[in-house]
Simulated assay, not measured.
Amino acid sequence: MSVLPIVTYDDPVLRQASAPVKENSEELQQLISDMFETMYNSNGVGLAAPQIGRSIRLFVMDADAITSELDEEEDLGPIAMINPKIESLSGDKVKMEEGCLSIPDLRDEIVRPDIVTVSYLDREFNSKKLTAEGWVSRVIQHEFDHLEGTLFIDYLSAFRKRLHRSMLKKIDSGQMEVDYPVVPKLPEKAGQTV
């Protein structure tokens, strides 16, 4: 397994709708293993393929670290979701703080429905359906958004976005230091001449 570099804010791949995964393969299985390794190395609870530069409908997650700490939900262990489809969103709208490995050190409160039902193919290409609430639901919705080209900051008001503008510029220019590998910014993005 390998730790892959993560693309950061304003990389075009984060704004594209991802293509469906067509078939199982050794390459796909290696990618899933590498994504889990990358997620754990970065202390994340979810990672979508676009975050490592692959515009395909795949994400991995393991929210057990959060759910065990809160002692409010069942531990599910690591899950790979291939070609996920949100079947329904329900329950109360809940505000929780979110962050993203592609937007390091920026966190804000986001309102989302508390319950999600998602259908997907698991790592062995078996059809699955999961209804989740709380943090597990939050992680699924956040990672699914990545497959649609949406970032959690898109849910913020114009005022909240302005508050984060300087940090976003710092991330976009490659000046943000993080303790996990990221894709280097192009020299012109970092303010250097070519």
Rank of each mutant, 00 (worst) to 15 (best):
A80H: 05
I32M: 03
A132P: 00
E87Q: 13
N24R: 15
I103E: 00
D11N: 15
E124S: 12
E37S: 10
R165V: 11
V111E: 15
L121T: 05
D105P: 08
N126P: 09
T8D: 03
T131C: 10
P84V: 08
D71S: 14
S55L: 10
E188D: 09
L168E: 05
T38E: 00
K129H: 07
K161L: 14
K22L: 13
L47V: 09
V45Q: 04
I153D: 01
L101N: 01
E124C: 04
Q29I: 02
P5E: 04
G134I: 00
E133H: 10
T117R: 14
G91M: 04
F125H: 14
D172L: 02
S33K: 15
V116M: 05
I171C: 05
L70C: 06
N24Y: 00
Q51D: 06
K93G: 04
D145Y: 01
D145G: 10
M61Q: 10
R162C: 05
M176W: 02
L121D: 15
D64F: 00
Q141T: 04
A48W: 02
Y40M: 09
D172M: 06
L31V: 03
Q30D: 06
S55H: 03
S127P: 14
P50I: 02
P181Q: 11
I79S: 03
R138V: 01
I86E: 13
R160M: 12
Q29M: 09
H164K: 14
Y9C: 02
C100N: 01
A158S: 12
E97I: 03
E188L: 07
Y155H: 14
E23K: 15
Q175D: 14
S2G: 04
P104M: 09
L28M: 10
E74W: 07
D108W: 03
I52W: 11
F59W: 07
D10R: 15
E177Y: 00
A190Y: 05
L186P: 07
T150D: 11
P181N: 02
I153H: 00
